[in-house]
Structure formats: C-alpha cells, structure tokens
C-alpha cells in the first residue's frame, strides 16, 4: 500500500533519513522503532509531506505522492497523529473532529452543507467516534482544557475523522499509564479489524511487540533490521543499536 523507495532527507550536513526502503502492506500494522534521533518522526513527516524529500520516491497505492501538498495526501487517505500533541486548543472537542472531515468522500458533499452545517451523517460520525474514544461527555469542552490522556485520545480520534486508509501514529503511548496503554492497544487492534493500515512509531517496546505484525528498526537514519517481532527482538544488530556493543557480545 505504501512504499518508500530509497528515501533520504538531509538537513544541511545531517542525514536524518538516509536511503530507507520501507513497505507497509495493506491491512498490516508495521511497527517502526529505533533509538532517539534515528529518523522515525522524520519519516512520518516525509510521508505526510510536511517537508520535501532530498531524494527517493514515496509510492502510495501505485502513485508517486512525493510532490503532493499535505492536505491532498490526507484526502487520499493518509492521516497522522503528532508526537507532541497538536490539537486546536481553542476549538471544542467536537469541532476538532469537525474540521478534520476531509476525506475524498466527505469532500464530495454539497458545498454549502459541507462548509456551513454539515450533513446529519457527518454529525453522527463525529458522535460515534467520540463515543469510541470515550470522549462523548467532553464534546463541548475546549480541547485545550482536557487532561493529557484525553488529549491523546482526541488526537487519535481527529486523525480517524478523515476516514484514513493509512494511519501514522507517532508515539501514541508517550506519557500514558499502563491502563491507558492497554486501551490504546485495544484501539489499534480495532483499527486493523476495520481495515485500516497502521504505521506505528513507538518507544514503548511492549506495545509494539504486542500489536505489530512486522517491525522495522532504524538507527542513524538507516534501516538496520526488519522482520517479525520475535525475529527483531532476537537480532544482534538491533540489540547493539539499543544497548551498545558490550551487551550484544
């Protein structure tokens, strides 16, 4: 479904991402892990189009999307969350999902209806999503006034509001407690059941090992390993990247 081909991003002399090939198969959950600064978030930003590639190709459903602006990629079905939460704090919880209804199907609505009131089905969709994320009772609160865990859930919900086929989760478990991570685990699995492909970037190893079908490991901007969770866990190169040479020996 998504194919990164020899993708590179250099910031001046820094090779944040350096010739990475990565394939996300339809319906799969691909975990992307790596030490701090290994280029994980940069890859998400490249897939979303927040900055241009230095070289390489990004192919989505057979089309090269590397030159498309970010909003066009969302319309094609690629949505994301942010590592550091970026909600619209002065909008209500409900409005945060409302403004994010930008899938190609939602765009086909009658122009006036779409920009003024919103159709009944669009409104019901928001209510359902809020219900699923246990935020229905907060619908009229300003997003900026929510507790941290609620903000994380709202960001996840907002990403789903555009009905993505591919969801990029950038460290969704950061700052969550065990119970919240458990719920997150369940929600990510539910995404797969609903046919959404997921690219999961996460530091929390247990979560990744638990939900991911495959895992790719980055270090210093390069892919150093890829395989099933068990194979990656046993890979000496991965251990070396995380723990240093002495421990691997």
């Amino acid at each position: 479904m998504l194919d990164l081909q020899a993708v590179s991003k250099h910031f001046g002399g820094v090779r944040a991402v350096d010739g990475v090939d990565l394939t996300v198969a339809r319906g799969q959950i691909l975990g992307l892990i790596g030490p701090n600064g290994s280029g994980k978030s940069t890859i998400v930003n490249l897939i979303c189009g927040l900055f241009p590639l230095t070289s390489g190709r990004i192919v989505y459903n057979g089309a090269d999307i590397a030159d498309l602006p970010p909003h066009a990629r969302v319309t094609m079905g690629i949505a994301r969350t942010f590592q550091n939460i970026r909600l619209f704090g002065q909008l209500t919880v409900w409005q945060n999902l409302w403004v994010a209804q930008n899938s190609s199907e939602q765009r086909k609505q009658n122009f006036l209806k779409r920009w003024l009131g919103g159709s009944r089905s669009a409104r019901e969709e928001i209510d359902r999503t809020l219900e699923f994320f246990d935020l229905a009772h907060k619908r009229d609160e300003l997003a900026g006034n929510l507790a941290f865990g609620e903000q994380r859930r709202l960001e996840f919900a907002r990403a789903l509001s555009a009905k993505p086929a591919l969801l990029l989760l950038d460290e969704p478990a950061a700052g969550m407690n065990a119970e919240e991570i458990d719920q997150l685990d369940g929600r990510i699995r539910r995404m797969r059941q609903d046919g959404i492909t997921v690219l999961l970037i996460e530091h929390h190893v247990e979560l990744v090992m638990s939900v991911a079908d495959r895992i790719a490991v980055l270090n210093f901007g390069q892919k150093i390993a890829e395989g099933t969770p068990a194979a990656v866990q046993a890979n000496p190169v991965v251990r070396e990247a995380y723990l240093g040479t002495a421990a691997a020996a």
């Binding site: 927040l50 970010p70 969302v74 319309t75 970026r86 909600l87 619209f88």
Partner: peptide
C-alpha cells in the same frame, strides 16, 4: 458557528496541524 468558522480558527491556531488534518490552508 459554521464549520467554515471552525476551519478558519483551526488554521489560525496551528497551520501545521491544520494541513495535517487535510485542510488546504
């Protein structure tokens, strides 16, 4: 009070997040 108004405010608050939710800023 319309969706258009909410979108205007979303762009005003965080352009990057607005783009990433599919708004043509």
């Amino acid at each position: 009070r319309s969706r258009a108004g909410a979108v205007l405010r979303a762009v005003g608050e965080d352009e990057l997040a607005a783009q990433s939710t599919g708004i043509n800023i």
